[in-house]
Design a protein around this nucleic acid. Structure first.
Lengths: 339, 339
DNA sequence: TCCCGTATTGACAGCGCTGTCAAAAGCTGG
DNA sequence: CCAGCTTTTGACAGCGCTGTCAATACGGGA
């Protein structure tokens, strides 16, 4: 199929509409913005011209000329394909949609350089606010924006210096409770499989684990920087090949849980090693045994972040919020396997 | 925490930089765009001023003034939180990133009105191209854009009238092969659980099922408009409560597979009713039995769509591509349960 | 020494739109 | 019929930037 030679039709502008309708530029502007004091007859003529030409206003020019209501929000996430961030995204989107705000998003893959580049680009587009669910790759730039008065909401992370509105899960406490549950089932050797400790959430969860183990007087067994499912799978293999293998595993995020589940299955040990995961998992109910998890609610986190952003847009100097969303334990089976 | 009264610092403009550096507006512009013929000494002064003021160019003004290289692509998807669309998104993002293109995305929830609104907004932002993975809610508007010369790529759907570049899976053929596989295991009553038949992909898959059944001389048993996991779960219950229940089920997309799996588990029938799903599933390996699926590759679809878009941006009148990405069968167990 | 080509810089218009303000048109009551 | 008001319309500047083109400065050769 050959595409027909493109008619080099310049997109019609407001002047084109004005000329066609035989009115002034400003009158077209009035009609488009539904301003008062326009004779219906003139409005009709303009509307007809708009229709005939297929005219659409240019938001960029509009925003440049007027100091407009907020229109776009930038969203920085680690990975759009990760269910956690996808759910945050969706929550955000739904919270902002009613206000007509559009999301411009990008994945950073936890690469600080990429994060910086992305943030700079978003600034150049003059987005009206930011929601940041990504590592600490751009704190300085971000701090500048906060200081400048641009609304910024952090999700699932914290920005240290200029305080900004923040939404996080009860990482530490929920982890502690989950580990205490494992302890209550008689486990003494509980391994912790977690991600990069430089990441705030990861360190919080690790701290929750340590608190529980310390209070119970047990030795910790920490495997960190397990950043993907495949590494978690291998780590699980290694753990169980140990001379004194753990009888329970705490997996500090969804990818790690996936790897641990796969690893246990590989060895046929899924029914005798207890497992508690952080993050809800698809098919957690249908797996055998079904999987106990700390269930974060990323959709809700995103939605709250959106609401905080809207509030900040309306009241730039209101007090700064720090919201902790409870991540409840879902006891399902794998966490109740006894020692 | 009280936020300090915001310094109402207007964001610095190019004029501010020019004034500070004691040079003309145009010189600043030259430095920023790395144009030739600028004395290093002057460039240094400008750079310093930019740094001191924390100046960032305004892309909107820039794009308005110059006819710029493409910068943004609009992505219409049904639901950002759906793993399929999230993976397409990610593929797109990765394909476009190297060209410095940014994605502006929105979820339509298969609501035509919302789809139209979203598309109109994206047009107002003058995005340089569209990738559309959403239902047929806005074909007229979209056709206008295609006719107008704006690059548009359809993913997982087709646009009938003005042909546009398209990337789809082998929906019909792969479904036929999967159903033929079930037939080969001796199944005679195979039920089809699918979504809205008005959606192109859904109708293609249904057609594949019909072809296989017709050729084998079997009666069809079609349950359509099963649009979410919960409805699929109930439909599965009903199907198995039938006087002549099916001995195998084909689930035409991931959400439906999830529901069917849950439904079978509810009844404890997961080991004696065969199941073939469309779309890859997390934990498909670890479930018992593990789940046979037609494995679409949404990441690759997104990546190809991105490449097609880039190609079209470069050669607006090249020939129109229609790419079918093979969705191979993954035989894992649930599809091999005999009648 | 002066002329000419090249390197460097800046003035100014204009991208598509909205805000301001003034002009034109229409209405009221006396 | 006119003053005095309101309604309706348009001219024009300017948002922050880039393209064009003219002006200035500098170097080398005649």
């Amino acid at each position: 199929m050959e595409r027909p030679a493109v008619p080099p039709t310049r997109r019609p502008t407001m002047s084109d509409v004005a000329a066609r309708a035989g009115v002034s530029l400003k009158s077209v502007s009035r009609v488009i913005n539904a301003e008062a004091h326009v004779r219906p007859e003139l409005a009709a003529r303009v509307t007809a011209a708009i229709e005939e030409l297929g005219y659409r206003p240019d938001r960029r020019a509009r925003d440049l000329a007027a100091s407009p209501a907020p229109r776009t929000i930038g969203y920085l996430q680690v990975d759009a394909a990760n269910p956690f961030f996808a759910a945050v995204y969706r929550g955000l989107e739904d919270a902002l949609r009613d206000e007509g705000l559009l999301l411009i998003a990008g994945s950073t893959d936890a690469d600080p350089a990429r994060e910086r580049r992305l943030l700079e680009t978003l600034i150049e587009f003059r987005v009206d606010g930011f929601v940041v669910a990504a590592a600490e790759g751009s704190d300085e730039l971000l701090g500048r924006e906060v200081a400048h008065g641009t609304p910024v909401v952090c999700v699932d992370r914290v920005l240290a210096d200029p305080a900004c509105d923040t939404v996080v899960s009860s990482n530490r406490d929920s982890t502690r409770l989950a580990v205490e549950h494992l302890l209550s089932r008689g486990h003494e050797r509980i391994a912790f499989l977690g991600g990069q400790t430089e990441v705030w959430t990861a360190s919080e969860r690790l701290e929750g684990y340590r608190q529980a183990m310390r209070r119970a007087g047990r030795d910790v067994r920490e495997v960190t920087h397990v950043d993907d499912s495949e590494r978690a799978r291998r780590a699980t293999h290694e753990l169980l090949a140990d001379e004194h293998p753990p009888t329970a595993i705490f997996a500090a995020q969804d990818r790690i849980s996936s790897g641990a589940i796969a690893g246990l299955h590989d060895l046929g040990r899924q029914r005798d090693v207890a497992l508690f995961g952080f993050d809800e998992l698809p098919f957690a109910e249908q797996l055998e045994p079904s999987i106990s998890v700390v269930a974060q609610d990323p959709y809700r986190m995103g939605a709250r972040a959106g609401q905080l952003l809207l509030a900040r847009l309306r009241h730039p100097s209101g007090s700064v919020a720090f919201e902790v969303i409870d991540a409840p334990l879902r006891h399902r089976g794998s966490g109740d396997i006894p020692a």
